[in-house]
Design a protein around this nucleic acid. Structure first.
Lengths: 342, 342
DNA sequence: AACGGTTGCGGGAACGGTTGCAAAAAAACT
DNA sequence: AGTTTTTTTGCAACCGTTCCCGCAACCGTT
């Protein structure tokens, strides 16, 4: 239970703790090579582990970045974290992960915890586009840079990185229409997630462009989870309306809808085309594989880290900037081929 | 960039920092109710955030548990973390998550980092059954309790919690045989994961019990990922052997195999039954839904936390204990119904 | 021998909280 | 009023590390 400290090492060797500290820090300027070697070996031998708490306290910074994500079900956030951790670690930063579980109050607790741990910066994907906006501002006003990724946040002057939801939607829905679909159901995302509005807007833009009627009956709240998606699908089926495609806010909800349809023996894509935005590897694991606008996860992580690291390097200097990435439409088996020009 | 400290609050109110500290700690014994109220309000107003580093340094403990997981692709570990976090938070513990990416050296770095952060205990799922065993021992000998979950670890005297892989295997394979399958391919897990051996043993036991021949040709190294599973499946198909079922070490590898089979128009389960151990929600999202022995994720998390918390409560007292949980066989669409008794 | 410069090291004050102990203040007894 | 008891507060040490400052030893130069 007792950890070895630099004082223990100092006593062991009959030198001062300053020397030990310098030796372990590799300060070649101020410590003789032999001493350095001796100290490091003794530290190794005695099983010394630096006490981060002491370092943080003294240095007034933690070399730690907090990452807040809304959920751990989809692989997107997990994969984002993996990329981000790699980038951050390369710059000597640790990461501490907090999950808000899509709940505003839990999100607040997460942020408070991160502040207590004196994180140097925060990468954040919000669970509500505006509910905690004031808190974000407060944190940033204390000098802790935040970069928001994936989910857009409203009314906060901060760096953001997300995909162009409108055009992602446009691309995907156009693909559907060009493949012959005319009555497209949209599984709408939760209204408190800004991206949902944009994706719906893209959907409507395409209908307009192709002079197709917009019928609100074809819009169902599909939530985020597979269960919600399944429920939404059943709800729509109740309405008894003809349809030939389902375009979903997110992967999981479409997969929920998919299982409902397959259970009712709809053929995919012959009877119904399926597609969504924000696809991950999951899309390739299901059958038929799911057409989707893929999140550029790696790029998003790189960008978010870059924006954050820039702010950390030049405190208070950087103006917030928003980077909009482009998702890649990947057509797979769940949508029909684009037909020859009519 | 400057945080408010208890000294700032003390100066503001003209009291000592001891009083502020006690007031914020809610020490009703030693501080007048009015003072307490005043201090708390001022702290609130000034935007005070306790410095965890200072507390940890003074208290010689961090109230933090480290969780090390091998990967972030499958939802199992994510979901485990979520449950564990809930239990631990209830007892006042924070969590810090580290990912070893299935690499022994990265796992060592993770553990070193956790030690530096002076975590009070570690929940761990290893990436190799024995490679870092000495390190685990060393950590535990320093008085940091570790509990190993899901993946078994060899040659270490520590608490573990995992499912009964042999009987899980037995149950699943028996189901296959009772549903009429006779030539069952097994996608073997990596040899450095102890559970793989047990699952293979279960497979063999059933064959023996039913007096079916064991043919090593039907065992293919299926790895962990979907890609590896797909590759293994193709490798097996090359052999040109007849088969009517695939039983896999894990979900993802079977899903990889599944996409290969479906691309080649095998009907599931009519031509080939599919099933695996260690299924998560993913099994219900694919089509046809996948029969599997489900991980009792929640129970495993509860148990692991309980074992760890017990050790934390009575330092050095608890003998290591191994808890073996039972997975639940969930039959879904990818396997045929069990036939009437022959 | 005296000089400035470099090198290598030790002393000690921070960093922000907690906590045992003593002292002061307030309350409750004679 | 004085005494005891209780409540409330302040003092100071401490946790492990960093880092500024100062000291001594040694160097080569004059």
């Amino acid at each position: 239970m007792k950890y070895v400290t630099i004082i223990d090492i100092a006593n062991e060797l009959g030198v001062s703790k300053s020397t030990v500290s310098r030796a372990l820090a590799g300060d070649a300027q101020n410590v003789k090579p032999e001493t350095m070697k001796l100290v490091c070996e003794t530290a190794q031998r005695m099983g010394y582990r630096r006490n981060e708490a002491a370092v943080n306290l003294r240095r007034q910074l933690s070399k730690t970045i907090g990452i807040v994500i809304p959920e751990v079900v989809t692989s997107f956030f997990m994969s984002f974290i993996q990329w981000a951790q790699r980038d951050l670690r390369q710059q000597g930063y640790r990461t501490i992960i907090a999950v808000s579980n899509e709940e505003v109050t839990q999100e607040r607790e997460c942020l408070q915890m991160l502040e207590q741990c004196r994180v140097d910066g925060i990468l954040m994907s919000v669970c509500h586009q505006s509910a905690n906006a004031a808190l974000y501002q407060e944190i940033m006003s204390r000098g802790i840079p935040m970069v928001f990724f994936d989910r857009q946040v409203c009314g906060v002057e901060a760096s953001q990185v997300h995909i162009d939801d409108v055009s992602a939607s446009v691309f995907m829905v156009e693909k559907l229409i060009r493949s012959g679909c005319r009555r497209i159901v949209h599984l709408l995302g939760p209204e408190h997630i800004g991206n949902a509005t944009d994706r719906l807007r893209g959907y409507r833009e395409v209908l307009e462009k192709f002079k197709l009627p917009y019928n609100p009956q074809y819009i169902v709240a599909g939530g985020l989870s597979a269960d919600e998606g399944a429920q939404a699908m059943e709800e729509f089926l109740q309405r008894g309306l003809a349809f030939d495609a389902v375009f979903g806010f997110t992967e999981t909800s479409v997969l929920g809808a998919k299982s409902v349809l397959q259970r009712m023996n709809f053929r995919i894509p012959d009877d119904v085309s399926l597609c969504c935005i924000s696809g991950t590897t999951l899309c390739t694991l299901v059958h038929p594989t799911l057409s989707a606008v893929e999140q550029p996860t790696e790029e998003m992580a790189h960008t978010a880290c870059r924006l954050l690291l820039e702010q950390l390097a030049t405190p208070g200097q950087c103006r917030p900037q928003t980077v909009v990435l482009h998702g890649e439409v990947v057509v797979r088996e769940s949508t029909k081929a684009v037909q020859a020009q009519a």
